[in-house]
Design a protein around this nucleic acid. Structure first.
Lengths: 304, 304
DNA sequence: CCTATTATTTAGTATTTTTAAATAATGGAA
DNA sequence: TTCCATTATTTAAAAATACTAAATAATAGG
């Protein structure tokens, strides 16, 4: 790389500011000859003499004065730019852009949101709620939170919940009409409301536990949504049986609009992970957020 | 010298501007690995990631964007500062500060002044007229013009005249009163007006030629000036005989206020030299001026 | 004139930078 | 999908550069 035109200017500026090579050498943490040689190299590179020098004193030439007056502020600007950049990464203020699903929000984020916001008043959380596994990098997110089984590769992933309880659910009206299934195999004769993963376009199988055996079933799918909200909505309207994370429908269970069935067979979903590109580990806002999630996770483990 | 904080930023800026490492490498005239390694070194030095990179594309991180936005203008400023400095030295506009004696002015500068000013309308000549051999460097002059025998050491010196004709002179009144000396040894019985060199504080000896023999004489000095003008003024007032460069009194010879004596014995003074610190050879204005003087000198040689 | 201080030169050493070649990774095309 | 073209990275070796110590030179001030 042919020496950049500005290479070595720091040495020149330091000499001028300090008034002598010796002092400049001290400031720069090198020997005096290094400074002398650097300056000469710069002069040769520019084809211009910058300093008159006797063995006792230093004085700028016309060209040197021109250079110093223009370059010194610019140099300071650059140093300042570097510092700003470093601080922007280390800063505990700024915006953290997250991509997460509704389920991830309810399960992983909602429990820590109040605490995190209180502890980090400078951080703006910019949350995109969507079901798809977006390309974090391309879309400009710092991180995403997804279930462990649909993680993108080549990302750092940190588990932020335990396994996620699931539930089969339907409206009381539907169950009264169609009867309550007693065993997963009964589902084959029911209206099942299914969820299609928007990214993979696959219909998500239902996870079932039976006597310690974990299996998946694939009941007939006459009604399919690509959002969990749609599934729940349809269930509330009595269109059939759905399966999803328990937390996503909890409020409807409480209100009596929905009730759970097949409780012993509902197998938990894999845990949620927050994932982000390797590079982002240096973004302080993200680090703080991840720490907060981890801490919550530890507390929940301790409770049990 | 611990790497300057801004070291390597040019590489980063180039990558961003060009949109890829490969293109940046081409612009910088190096191989792609060099660019990649430089960037990584910069990131490590700053402790901040600047670019997301896949093998196919480059995207700035938040910190990278901050750095680019602030550093790019500053970097351009610096490059501009360098260019300005180079141009200031190369410029054919600007100010040329000269230190010279009255004799030097009349003998060396006056003959070329009109031509030089016509050819270089952009150059301001800032001339300090004084008899002392000033410290060019300390006083901020680009060059001085002095007689060859009183040159400072460690300067570049360029001869700009031939040997300088001298003359013994006095007013017609004085000569009528005291008689015209016929031989230098007669001067010992005359009132001689002498010149003290301001720098060395020495009284300048009078240079004499006799039958090819060059000698110096030191006639009694009852009246001494430290400017040639003073010597001439006193001579015009009839106070005695002076000796100096012929050109400095030419106008008074023409007007009849002074007349020359001992013509065959008047030994020429050494030539004038323009001298300047080694460093100034790169100042374009000075180069032009020296060239102009040299050319004049060549023309005069040719005429003879 | 000497001394203390500073800059420069030199030659050798250490460090950094660069390169070439191989490897890895990606996005688009077949 | 698999392959291809393109790009980034890793590696080890080489080249280039920067640094130092010691000697030298130069100057201002006592």
């Amino acid at each position: 790389m042919e020496r950049a035109p500005i290479h070595g200017i720091e040495v020149f500026l330091t000499i001028v500011r300090e008034g002598s090579m010796r002092a400049a050498a001290e400031v720069l943490g090198v020997g005096a000859p290094a400074v002398s040689l650097q300056l000469k190299a710069l002069e040769d590179r520019l084809g211009v003499d910058l300093l008159f020098r006797t063995t006792r004193s230093i004085e700028m030439t016309d060209a040197g004065r021109v250079l110093f007056e223009a370059a010194d502020p610019a140099y300071r600007d650059m140093v300042h730019a570097v510092r700003k950049s470093q601080e922007s990464a280390k800063s505990t203020t700024g915006t953290l852009r997250l991509s997460l699903s509704r389920g991830a929000y309810i399960t992983a984020v909602a429990p820590v949101l109040a605490k995190f916001r209180a502890e980090n008043p400078g951080i703006t959380l910019d949350i995109s709620w969507n079901e798809e596994l977006v390309d974090i990098l391309r879309e400009g997110f710092h991180a995403g939170i997804r279930l462990g089984d649909i993680l993108a590769p080549d990302m750092l992933a940190v588990r932020v919940t335990g396994p996620v309880p699931s539930a089969f659910f339907a409206s009381p009206e539907y169950l009264k009409e169609q009867g309550k299934p007693k065993h997963p195999r009964d589902l084959l004769d029911h209206h099942c409301i299914r969820y299609r993963q928007p990214t993979s376009k696959a219909i998500r199988e239902w996870w079932v536990t039976e006597k310690g055996q974990e299996t998946r079933i694939d009941p007939p799918s006459r009604l399919v949504f690509d959002t969990v909200i749609g599934v729940i909505q349809a269930a509330r309207e009595g269109h059939g049986i759905g399966w999803s994370m328990r937390t996503t429908m909890e409020e409807h269970l409480r209100s009596g609009e929905l009730e759970t069935i097949l409780e012993p067979y509902a197998r938990p979903l894999p845990p949620f992970y927050i994932y982000y590109p390797d590079q982002n580990k240096r973004v302080e806002c993200l680090r703080l957020f991840v720490d907060c999630l981890k801490q919550q996770q530890r507390q929940e483990n301790a409770k049990r």
